[in-house]
């Protein structure tokens, strides 16, 4: 059984308007793969369809060898994939610790949960300091850490990160990407959706460039970061 995420011919529509026109990509175990593209290219839509938040019109989604196309998201949780949604989606009226425990909602093994909780709080010491605080009082960067930590608490090996750098100060953006590297080094697989193409390509192994609902270019991160089209459109020109 091949570990990882494989998406074939994915089409997603909002009402009658098709937003994603037959996109295929693969994320293999241990990779950091990035999906870059302009605002409105359909990046978030793809992630939302993959994790069952919105219905798939056509195509297949295969997670660790199991076809999960159009499964409701609560059934996908626990199969090894977790989605950190755009805008972080933390539960502001719950404490930091409660947010993390919600992540472990489907898991039964108390020892494993405690182990992962220690791991997450070790990874994000800031969250450890604030674990009794309401999550709504955290800063943007801390909320992003919490969203990632919560996803890790589901026990997933594959993380889908939707615009983790959005709305963060440059110094924090860097620390978020460093966290991605740390998590990948700990053996996790990451699918990173980003508008910040330079940062995303700097840490990714491979990438896909999405233009108006279709994949325009794909390849190794190094290849992409030197590709003239990518340079012009996403990296501020060849300088």
């Amino acid at each position: 059984m091949a570990k990882g995420l494989s998406v074939k011919g994915l089409k997603v529509a909002y009402g009658n308007i098709e937003a994603v026109h037959g996109v295929s990509f693969e994320v293999n175990e241990g990779e950091i793969v990035t999906l870059i593209g302009a605002n409105g290219a359909g990046k978030s839509t793809i992630l939302r369809a993959v994790s069952g938040m919105i219905p798939v019109k056509e195509g297949t989604v295969i997670l660790n060898g199991t076809e999960i196309t159009s499964w409701p998201s609560h059934q996908i949780t626990g199969l090894g994939m977790a989605h950190v949604p755009e805008g972080r989606g933390i539960f502001t009226r719950l404490t930091v610790l409660e947010n993390l425990l919600v992540g472990a909602f489907k898991r039964k093994d108390k020892k494993e949960i405690d182990g992962d909780l220690d791991y997450v709080l070790g990874l994000f010491p800031r969250l450890n300091e604030r674990k009794k605080q309401l999550a709504g009082t955290l800063s943007g960067g801390e909320q992003q850490m919490l969203a990632v930590g919560r996803a890790l608490m589901t026990g997933a090996d594959i993380l889908l990160l939707d615009e983790p750098s959005m709305g963060l100060a440059p110094v924090l953006v860097e620390s978020i990407f460093n966290i991605c590297i740390d998590i990948a080094e700990a053996g996790k697989t990451i699918l990173l959706v980003e508008q910040n193409a330079a940062m995303a390509l700097a840490i990714a192994d491979r990438g896909y460039v999405l233009e108006t609902g279709s994949i325009a270019i794909h390849g190794d991160a190094e290849y992409l970061s030197k590709h003239p089209d990518v340079l012009n459109a996403y990296l501020g020109g060849a300088s």
Binding site: G52, H74, G89, F91
Partner: peptide, 24 residues
Amino acid sequence: TRFGLAVRAAAERQDVAGLMGIDS
């Protein structure tokens, strides 16, 4: 309770609660 926690999470964001495995 664990179920109560799920209820409070779903009260705020049903879609995100779904991502955490909570059947809204």
